[in-house]
Amino acid sequence: MTFGLNSPHVVQEDVDNEVIIVHLVTGSYYSLTGSGAEIWSLILQGHDNTAVIERIAGGASADHQHVATEIERFLGELQAEGLIVPTQDNLRSIAQPDSTPSGHFVSPSLQKYSDMQELLLVDPIHEVETTGWPKVLTNH
């Protein structure tokens, strides 16, 4: 199965190797951690889930079944949040990916920030952790 961005309701950007995503209807902000950015990139390139698993698992030292389970879970999470939608286009499923695999698999996760008003009110210099907005200081 192939997926595409749930456009125009969702926008995303690669910010210095970090994928950030906004669902424009709900106002939720997301960032991807672990191998999430690599998986996300492959999905948006049009590769089907099998090709994504092969691609990631093939280049990683981790157990193939573990990688497959984690990627399927991650894709389900992205779908449940309405960030990606199934598409009919699987033309890229047998094509070569545009990038080389990282060779290192870290379970992907989706970090969600859903309180839009707090996100917009927080001071991104003085009220955030050193990694910056949207990670708010715990004592804030």
């Binding site: 991104p124 990694t131 907005w133």
Partner: peptide, 9 residues
Amino acid sequence: GRFKGVYRR
């Protein structure tokens, strides 16, 4: 890292 956060925001 906070300036990157300003960009994100």
